[in-house]
Write a protein that binds this DNA or RNA. Structure first.
Lengths: 140, 140
DNA sequence: AAAAAGTTGAGAATCTTTCTCATAATCGTA
DNA sequence: TACGATTATGAGAAAGATTCTCAACTTTTT
């Protein structure tokens, strides 16, 4: 029930916005590109324009409903903001994304920022590599 | 004297490549977009095509001579690889970039990766905010 | 229900980056 | 030092991602 969130953000409760939120909520991957969302909506028979998706995602980002992440590869990915900050680990083989949170790292960042006279607003930490279990050793 | 580096990477020593390296070495900002390099070269009377700049930067990246960074905003920025890994702090007001290195964070990343069965290849840590000294409080 | 305000879809436009291909430069060798 | 094989360059076209434009349409307010 996010119609509240939309209203709070000064956004009208429209069909495209609800559907986009739904997709983000249901996606098992949790991290989707605008195109991913576009295709998933099409599959469900919702013909929502790509331009609308980008527009809405940008509005959602401004409202704090979603986060936009810049992984390698140019295309931005979006995730629902579930209130808890976390960083990301991206498997270069499968594209799998795992979230993690580490208070030691968070704390160090604050200290480093302070030491540099830097007002820390946000940060992006992404680990790149491969999950060992995702490795297809010898199989077909 | 990087002609050695170019040869070692299996790249011919050409005028565009030398000039691009020069620009990267001399740039006080240390972090340039392909366009930045293109414009700086033009200012020096070097008419090198943008396509060449992108091509060369990609080759340099593969050879480990430069790093490609993805700050917010879509455009990639490049820096000369001076052999010492570091992360970045970006001022949203001035665009100023400051490098830092923190062994505690590096170590934590390795531990986190290990705990997740993740073979860590690389990482990107960027702090966003503003340098307090860059703040134009009241001035003209 | 009508008016006011905000939203959508489609395609055009923009921006960044890569590709194509004919021409030109580099490098090892004769 | 010139030759030939190889590789690189420049310009413009092309591709990919995202934003813009604007007329038609919903939502919300009155």
């Amino acid at each position: 029930m996010e119609t509240q969130d939309l209203k709070k953000a000064g956004l009208k409760v429209t069909h495209p916005r609800m559907k986009i939120l739904e997709i983000l909520e249901r996606a098992p991957e949790h991290h989707l590109t605008a195109e991913d969302i576009y295709r998933k909506l099409l599959e469900e028979g919702e013909q929502i324009g790509l331009a609308t998706i980008y527009r809405v995602l940008t509005q959602f980002e401004a409202a704090g409903l979603v986060n936009r992440l810049h992984f390698e590869g140019g295309q931005a990915v979006f995730e629902l903001d579930r209130g808890t900050h976390h960083d990301h680990m991206v498997c270069s083989r499968t594209g799998r994304v795992v979230e993690f949170y580490d208070e030691v790292i968070e704390q160090r960042q604050r200290e480093i920022a302070k030491a540099h006279g830097f007002r820390l607003r946000d940060h992006s930490l992404i680990l790149y590599g491969e999950f060992i279990e995702d490795e297809d050793t010898s199989s077909s």
